[in-house]
Design a protein around this nucleic acid. Structure first.
Lengths: 191, 191
DNA sequence: GTCTATAGCCGGATAGAC
DNA sequence: GTCTATCCGGCTATAGAC
């Protein structure tokens, strides 16, 4: 029975706090206190806050990749795979209404801070974009595949942003259904 | 020749810095230094950071209301008025690619901080939503007017979020054109 | 209204004992 | 690997001279 390493416990707690409180607003003391660790011990695992941020981003990249792979395994049809992505909005709607999208809000915060890790954080978006592009290509979208992928990614970002501002549950359901409808009206001649 | 009051200079500089750097990440010293003021003088005008935030939000509400009014004056047709809103994405694209949408990113930050002013910040969104709802109602959207308004608001938020992440200029133009196209395909029977 | 000086707290980060 | 103790700097905020 492998005990979860302290390092991994730190990463997962930081992941949660960066999402729910923000990167800047989360202090070492916050993470340490939430885990029942001393700050000194903390620095044994991560020397700087940026190191934790890098580890959290790497952790999110891994989780995202695993999720996308799982969708490919369980849903053979590209259309259903895209709907798996859309369903995140529904499944996570409580957290989204409280804290927005974890990917979008971290990216936005790092952009304002002019933080070196902004590019790394954007890689999570890029993972979704490229995976969605593959699905649209499989649907026959041809050269439009990436534009469609960015459109869906953007659509979900907008829904998360407005849902968080107004705490509007019905809006999320309506827009998620809207994405599904839009998918069906697509002209997929593969031009 | 009315000199701009120190209070107003503080509000406008704070407005800019809250947008470009973030609320939390902007210190009193940053605002004071940017204006060439001492910190002591600063506290003569605003006793707490929350007071500045309230003033900045009130300032943004005023600016937004004035902008919407101006659009009503210059564009009689509701469709053109909505396109004025969409055009913000194009006109402000450089800032959007660097810092995202000022309304959305402030709202997201305050939500994470569990800040009391989150509700006030959301009023800026509400201003846009209600104004857009009026335009869709004038277009004959009937009971769908508010849903359409939120859809457009959400769409623009998504575009700002993705444009900021990828710094993608072409994407902004493509999506802005997409909103205009969507407007024209709307079934407006006023059900 | 504007300044200097300073209090007091909390943040990130380090040294070293166990 | 975990802890205590500590340094330094920046932050909000206050007091008081001009």
């Amino acid at each position: 029975m492998p005990k979860v390493s302290t390092r991994n416990r730190i990463i997962q707690k930081a992941d949660t706090l960066f999402y729910e409180v923000g990167f800047e607003a989360t202090s070492f003391a916050d993470i340490a206190a939430a885990l029942g660790l001393s700050r000194g011990n903390f620095y044994h695992h991560f020397r700087t806050k940026d190191e934790i941020l890098d580890a959290v981003i790497a952790y999110r990249l891994d989780k995202t990749w695993a999720m996308l792979s799982a969708w490919e395994d369980t849903s053979p049809a590209p259309r259903n795979r895209i709907l798996c992505f859309v369903r995140i909005l529904i499944v996570n709607r409580d957290k989204i209404m409280a804290f927005g999208c974890p990917v979008g809000t971290l990216s936005a915060e790092l952009a304002k801070l002019n933080h070196a890790a902004h590019g790394r954080a954007t890689e999570i978006f890029a993972l979704f974009r490229d995976w969605l592009t593959s699905q649209f290509r499989a649907l026959g979208a041809g050269k439009q595949a990436e534009a469609h992928a960015l459109h869906v990614l953007s659509w979900s970002q907008g829904v998360a942003s407005i849902a968080a501002a107004f705490r509007d549950d019905a809006f999320i359901h309506r827009e998620a259904a809207g994405i599904a409808d839009w998918l069906d009206t697509l002209k997929l001649q593969g031009d």
